[in-house]
Simulated assay, not measured.
Amino acid sequence: MQETEKISGNQLGFLLITFVISTIILTVPGIMVMFGKQNAWISIIPASLTGLLSIYVMITLSNRYPGLTITQYGSKIVGKWLGRLLGINYIYYWFVSISTIIMQHSGFVNTLLLPKSPPIVASLTFLILCSIAVIAGIEVIARCNEFLTVIILFFLIPLLILSAVQGDANQLKPILGEGMIPVLQGSVSPAGGFMNQLFILGWLLPYLNQPQKARKASLIALASISVLIITVILLTITVLGPLTGKLTYSFLSVIQYIGIAGSFERLEALAVSIWVLGCFVKVSVSLFILCLCASQLFGLRNYRDIVLPISLLSLIGSAWIFKNASELLNYLAFTFPLLAFFNQSLLPLSLLMIDTIKRKTRQSLL
């Protein structure tokens, strides 16, 4: 870790918010309504509990091993060789995550803006920009994100207001008409795949200049994320109704609809801006974590030395990982929540349990 790089509690909170909501406000409503139907907005409530668990686990481990990332204190908890396996697992996980986000980004841009351009062009230019940000450091990314978060909210809030005007609250009925099972099924995607993304605290907390503010900043971020996602899903359902679960970018369809029906046209340009800005922060933070994991695992002095090679591999991965958009959607709906739950919740929770048992065993032997 570079000791000169530090971020504030507010910057940490903004990073968490942008990291989680950047891609989900356009894609997740459709996936959740696919399972939860008109009650999908309720699914966020049980899903947010997993976010609370992630915050508790990561902050507890960070307090026990101050100044260390999860890659580093994992070896102290489970031993050198298992710790290395843990590090390799997270390198693979973050590589797949970055490749997936880049493919999502290039597909989104090609669909709306550049249908005749090769996807590799959008991916390459985007990764170059993210690589520059990572080389600049996490402090620069955090400062940049403060400004970008204001822009995203400036674009998003008017869209939410216009959507509310066009919505029909009757689309939300009947509430819990089929019981809690569809609601719990709808919570799997945000719980396993998105709320638990707060586990990036395992790599960001060592850079926090005031560690005592970690809990407050994280809880405020979780509350903000939950309220924003509930709002987006509610508005999407009230405007589109059952059609929501059949659309890949359902909230984008809402924005296109209100643009045609209202006094403003081509409002999807604002959605594209929100997507691009949010994806920039998400990929930059993910790439930073991936480079940090690799440098710590292999004993490199500076993670910046491997940013460009890893970015090139991520570019190749984005072109190779899925054959088409249908495979990507199936992965996001069914596979990714389980993979994310294992890496973001189960592994950190296991580390905390093992460390707690070891500490109590030592105390009993004294």
Rank of each mutant, 00 (worst) to 15 (best):
276 V>T: 13
151 I>L: 10
291 C>V: 03
362 R>I: 05
74 G>L: 09
215 R>Y: 08
329 L>D: 08
294 A>F: 13
153 L>K: 00
149 T>Q: 03
220 I>C: 05
44 I>N: 11
316 I>Q: 12
256 Q>R: 15
133 A>W: 10
190 P>K: 02
192 G>C: 05
147 F>M: 13
325 A>L: 12
140 V>M: 07
306 I>T: 07
84 R>G: 02
127 L>C: 14
255 I>C: 04
248 T>P: 03
140 V>I: 14
338 L>C: 05
338 L>H: 03
160 L>M: 11
313 L>Q: 06
220 I>G: 00
68 L>Q: 14
136 A>F: 10
1 M>H: 07
130 C>M: 05
358 K>D: 02
8 S>T: 15
21 I>D: 01
45 I>L: 12
57 V>Q: 05
267 L>E: 13
198 L>W: 00
253 S>I: 00
363 Q>D: 12
63 N>I: 03
44 I>C: 10
154 F>S: 14
325 A>G: 02
176 L>Q: 03
301 R>W: 00
89 N>H: 13
352 L>F: 06
310 I>S: 13
337 P>R: 08
85 L>D: 02
188 V>C: 02
327 E>L: 14
264 F>K: 05
233 I>L: 13
341 F>G: 11
86 L>F: 13
33 V>K: 06
297 L>T: 15
7 I>E: 06
125 T>N: 11
225 I>W: 13
165 V>F: 15
38 Q>M: 02
281 V>W: 06
194 F>S: 15
273 S>V: 13
333 A>Y: 10
193 G>V: 06
203 W>F: 15
70 I>Y: 00
248 T>G: 01
273 S>L: 11
247 L>Y: 02
13 G>H: 01
79 G>H: 08
219 L>I: 15
198 L>D: 01
65 Y>R: 07
25 I>P: 01
349 L>A: 15
309 P>S: 12
156 L>M: 13
364 S>R: 01
23 T>Y: 01
171 Q>E: 10
245 G>M: 07
78 V>Q: 01
157 I>E: 06
31 I>D: 14
226 S>T: 12
291 C>F: 06
247 L>E: 09
276 V>Q: 00
165 V>W: 14
105 H>K: 00
317 G>R: 03
33 V>F: 01
66 P>V: 05
11 Q>A: 04
170 N>W: 01
250 S>N: 02
265 E>H: 15
121 V>F: 06
24 I>F: 00
185 Q>I: 05
